Amino acid sequence: TEKEKEVKRLAKERGLSPDQVRELAQRAGFSPDQAKQIADEFA
Score class of each variant (00 low, 15 high):
Lys3Trp: 12
Asp19Lys: 11
Lys3Ser: 09
Glu4Met: 15
Ala43Ile: 12
Gln34Thr: 07
Arg14Gln: 15
Ala28Phe: 15
Gln20Leu: 06
Gly15Val: 04
Leu10Phe: 04
Gln20Tyr: 03
Ala35Phe: 00
Gln37Tyr: 04
Asp33Val: 10
Lys36Pro: 00
Lys5Tyr: 08
Arg14Ala: 14
Arg22Phe: 15
Glu41Pro: 02
Gly15Pro: 00
Lys3Glu: 07
Arg9Leu: 05
Ala39Lys: 02
Glu6Ser: 06
Glu6Tyr: 12
Glu23Ile: 11
Glu4Gln: 12
Leu24Cys: 07
Lys36Leu: 11
Arg22Trp: 11
Ala25Val: 03
Leu24Gln: 04
Glu6Leu: 15
Arg22Asn: 12
Lys3His: 07
Gln34Asp: 09
Glu4Pro: 03
Lys36Met: 12
Lys8Ile: 15
Ala39Cys: 04
Val21His: 00
Ala28Trp: 12
Asp40Cys: 11
Ala39Ser: 08
Thr1Leu: 14
Leu16Lys: 00
Ala11Gly: 15
Asp19Val: 09
Leu10Val: 15
Glu6Trp: 15
Pro18Tyr: 15
Gln34Glu: 14
Gln26Trp: 02
Ala25Trp: 00
Gly15Glu: 06
Glu2Gln: 12
Ala25Ser: 03
Arg14Glu: 13
Pro18Ser: 09
Ile38Thr: 01
Pro32Gly: 05
Pro32Met: 04
Arg27Lys: 14
Leu16Asn: 02
Ala43Ser: 11
Ala39Trp: 02
Val7Cys: 09
Gln37Asn: 09
Glu4Ala: 15
Arg14Tyr: 13
Asp33Leu: 08
Ala35Asn: 01
Asp19Met: 09
Lys36Trp: 13
Lys36Ala: 13
Ala35Trp: 01
Pro32Trp: 06
Asp40Thr: 07
Ser17Asp: 11
Gln20Lys: 07
Gly15Ser: 08
Pro32Thr: 06
Ala11Met: 01
Asp40Asn: 10
Glu23Ser: 07
Glu2Cys: 12
Pro32Val: 07
Glu41Cys: 07
Glu2Gly: 10
Glu41Val: 04
Ile38Trp: 03
Val7Tyr: 03
Arg14Ser: 13
Glu2Ser: 12
Arg14Asp: 10
Phe30Thr: 01
Glu41Asn: 08
Ser31Glu: 06
Val21Asp: 02
Arg22His: 09
Arg9Ser: 06
Val21Phe: 03
Arg9Asn: 09
Gly29Cys: 01
Val21Cys: 10
Val21Tyr: 01
Val21Trp: 02
Phe30Pro: 00
Ala43Thr: 10
Ile38Met: 07
Arg27Tyr: 07
Pro18Ile: 12
Leu10Asp: 09
Lys8Pro: 04
Glu23Pro: 00
Ala25Asn: 00
Ala35Glu: 02
Gly29Asp: 01
Ile38Asp: 01
Leu16Val: 02
Asp40Trp: 09
Lys5Leu: 11
Thr1Asp: 13
Ser31Asp: 11
Gly29Glu: 01
Gln20Gly: 08
Glu6Gln: 10
Glu13Met: 07
Gly29Met: 00
Ser17Trp: 06
Ala35His: 01
Leu16Arg: 01
Arg27Ala: 15
Glu41Gly: 06
Lys5Gly: 08
Gly15Asn: 12
Ala43Asn: 08
Glu41Ala: 10
Ala28Cys: 13
Thr1Glu: 14
Leu24Ala: 07
Glu23Phe: 02
Glu4Asp: 05
Val21Asn: 01
Lys12Glu: 13
Glu23Arg: 09
Glu13Gly: 05
Lys36Asp: 11
Arg9Lys: 08
Glu41His: 05
Glu13His: 06
Phe42Lys: 02
Val21Gln: 00
Gly15Met: 08
Phe30Ser: 01
Asp19Arg: 10
Arg27Ser: 14
Arg27Asn: 14
Gln34Ala: 13
Leu16Glu: 01
Glu13Ala: 11
Ser31Phe: 04
Ile38Ala: 02
Gln26Lys: 10
Leu16His: 02
Gln34Trp: 06
Asp40Ala: 10
Phe42Ile: 13
Lys3Arg: 13
Asp33Tyr: 03
Pro18Val: 12
Ala35Pro: 01
Asp33Thr: 13
Ala28Thr: 07
Asp33Ser: 14
Arg27Val: 11
Asp40Ile: 11
Val21Ser: 01
Lys8Gly: 04
Gly29Arg: 00
Gln26Leu: 14
Phe30Ala: 02
Arg9Phe: 03
Phe30Trp: 04
Asp19Gly: 08
Glu2Asp: 13
Asp40Met: 10
Lys36Tyr: 09
Leu16Cys: 07
Phe30Arg: 01
Gln37Phe: 05
Pro18Ala: 12
Ile38His: 01
Lys5Arg: 13
Glu2Asn: 11
Glu13Val: 09
Arg9Tyr: 03
Arg22Cys: 09
Glu4Ile: 15
Glu41Asp: 14
Asp40Lys: 09
Pro32Leu: 05
Thr1Phe: 14
Lys3Leu: 15
Glu6Asp: 08
Val21Arg: 00
Pro18Cys: 05
Lys12Cys: 13
Glu41Ile: 06
Glu6Met: 14
Leu10Pro: 04
Val7Asn: 04
Gly15Arg: 08
Gln34Val: 13
Leu24Pro: 02
Ser17Gly: 08
Arg9Gln: 10
Arg14Met: 15
Glu4Gly: 11
Lys3Cys: 12
Gly29Asn: 02
Leu24Gly: 02
Pro32His: 05
Phe42Ser: 05
Lys8Phe: 03
Lys5Met: 12
Glu23Ala: 08
Ser31Pro: 11
Arg14Cys: 15
Lys8Met: 05
Lys12Leu: 06
Asp33Ile: 12
Thr1Trp: 14
Asp33Met: 08
Glu41Gln: 10
Ala35Asp: 00
Leu10Asn: 10
Ala39Glu: 03
Gln34Lys: 15
Arg22Val: 15
Pro18Phe: 12
Leu10Gly: 06
Pro32Ile: 06
Gln26Gly: 07
Lys5Gln: 13
Asp19Ala: 11
Gln26His: 06
Ala35Val: 04
Arg14Lys: 14
Thr1His: 14
Gly29Leu: 00
Arg9Asp: 12
Ser31Ala: 08
Arg27Trp: 08
Ala39Thr: 03
Phe30Lys: 01
Phe30Leu: 07
Ala11Thr: 00
Glu2His: 10
Val21Ile: 12
Asp33Phe: 03
Ala11Asp: 03
Phe30Gly: 01
Gln26Tyr: 04
Gln26Thr: 13
Arg14Ile: 13
Gly15Cys: 08
Ser17His: 09
Gly15Leu: 06
